[in-house]
Design a protein around this nucleic acid. Structure first.
Length: 448
RNA sequence: GGUCGGGUGGCCGAGAGGCGAGGCAAGGGACUGCAAAUCCCUCUACACGGGUUCAAAUCCCGUCCCGACCUCCA
């Protein structure tokens, strides 16, 4: 399979190390629920893993859980984990565990296959300290007079290769208020270890005093450790391209003396009703919100798959509704096409998957197959679903009827047999108001 | 100011020099007691101005507009 690499800005063949595809994905920060935009990125790593598996590779996927650190890059008092903890009046670690659990539940509702490892930043402190020490020893990092340890950006040649930013053109304080506190030697230097200051929660002892890790170091530490020093594919949201991935690359490469990551893959952002989904825009949508509107979470997955992962996509309630109906129609048709669990490879779909995850094309092909006269539609759909993960072979769930529903259904059967159409129509409206879909056929009415 | 990516029919969205993707919505038809579901049909576009070419939505130049990132973010 080929995929677009942000660093080289072209399609690259996905490779393996000793026969295993080592993939690292920047995971969630667990101080709140992941919204559907966050989930789009995690779907991206799921797609890569599924396609690689389908192509016969073995996948070793790591996704970190950020439960400490990075939200306080510049303002200690604004640490989001600690803020949320004081808001919910529980221990910050409990907050982290709570939202981590909910994160896994959301992944499962979107049929995202779990990664092999979910390392927590808070449990990788020693790894990070080891890495920081190595960076100090090799002259890439220094201890500031504020007790924090900083990475010296200018020491790493090639800084900016992923984002295209150059150190010279990074203006200090272009969008944020730059505090020259004197500890950093250069404005683009970043903290590897932050001095605790007044903080008493989520802090650790270190050779440089009590403190907590900077945001970027956790990904270097965990990926180098769990993936034996080499990442074949590194996944994350487009916003992480700079500074997070730029800094991560500098740290990792400085430690191992070579390129730690082969391919950098970035997922574009999700807009909702025309605007970037974010807390500040007030348009955050959770998986819960879909469910409460009667939309199958896998309809969201279908919406995502109908758009290229590298394009910003505008999600709307209309598109979710349309996907929900398409999904229902496909499942109904699948059940009329038999019950075989067999798959048949469709070469067009196979090629689309291998060509930079062209799931939109795969879905177009699926619609074509749906309307065709082929007699192995089910097998072709089953094949596509290995990657699409839409549970296309899920049987219709039998609805449980309430006594009231059963009573109205019985009345309507009677009315229909007596050709009292006005009564029949009125009863149908009643049933529909109760949430049933009524179909009248030659054999009588059916409901779902 | 720097770095990315865009502007395609009522809407969403592929395509990347020549055969008008597809979906949603809408309208018409078949089916139905009427519906629903399903199936069939219909409509049609490439931001603007130049240029290259036998041929441009696609390439080149210019203009306008939009979004993202530039030290919080998936």
């Amino acid at each position: 399979m080929k995929i677009y690499d942000t660093k080289s800005r072209e399609l690259q063949q996905v490779g393996t190390t000793h026969g295993v595809l080592n993939m690292y994905c920047c995971g969630p920060t667990v101080y709140r629920d992941a919204h559907v935009g966050n989930l789009r990125t995690f779907l991206l790593s799921d797609l890569i893993a599924r396609i690689a598996t389908l192509e016969g590779m073995t996948v070793n996927a790591v996704e970190n859980i950020t439960d400490v650190g990075h939200m306080s890059e510049d303002f200690v008092e604004h640490d989001k984990m600690l803020q949320q903890a004081s808001l919910e009046k529980i221990d910050p670690f409990e907050i982290a565990r709570k939202y981590e659990e909910r994160f896994h539940a959301d992944l499962s509702r979107l049929n995202i296959i779990p990664a092999n490892h979910y390392p927590r930043a808070s449990e990788s402190i020693q790894l990070m300290q080891d890495l920081i020490q190595k960076l100090i020893d090799s002259g890439f990092a220094y201890v500031g007079d504020d007790g924090s340890v900083y990475f010296e950006a200018q020491k790493f040649l090639g800084y900016g290769a992923i984002s295209g930013n150059k150190l010279d053109s990074l203006k200090p304080g272009h969008r944020y208020e730059y505090h020259n506190d004197g500890a950093k030697r250069f404005h683009a230097d970043w903290a590897l270890w932050k001095s605790a200051g007044d903080r008493t929660e989520m802090v650790w002892e270190s050779p440089w005093g009590t403190g907590f890790p900077g945001w970027h170091i956790e990904c270097s530490a965990m990926s180098l450790d769990l993936l034996q020093g080499h990442v074949d594919v590194h996944v994350g949201g487009i916003d992480l391209r700079f500074p997070h991935h730029e800094n991560e690359r500098a740290q990792s490469n400085a430690v191992i003396g070579k390129e730690a990551v082969d391919l950098w893959v970035h997922g574009e952002h999700l807009l909702f009703e025309g605007r970037k989904m974010s807390k500040s825009s007030g348009n955050v949508v959770l998986v819960e919100d879909l469910i409460s509107r009667g939309i199958d979470p896998l309809a969201l997955r279908l919406c995502f798959l109908e758009n290229r992962y590298r394009s910003q996509m505008d999600l709307t309630w209309d598109s979710l509704q349309a996907a929900n109906e398409t999904l229902a129609r496909w499942r109904t048709k699948m059940s009329t096409w038999g019950s075989s669990p067999e798959i048949t490879v469709d070469t067009e779909i196979e090629a689309a998957f291998g060509n930079d995850l062209d799931t939109p094309k795969a879905i177009i092909r699926l619609r074509e197959i749906e309307k065709s006269a082929l007699d192995n539609k089910r097998e072709l759909f089953m094949y596509a679903d290995r990657v699409l993960g839409l549970d296309l072979d899920r049987p219709d769930v039998a609805r449980t009827l309430t006594d009231q529903m059963q009573k109205i259904l019985d009345e309507r059967t009677k009315a229909r047999s007596e050709k009292r159409w006005a009564d029949s129509d009125a009863l149908r409206v009643q049933l529909e108001d109760l949430g049933l879909h009524i179909k009248d056929t030659a054999e009588g009415q059916s409901w779902s």
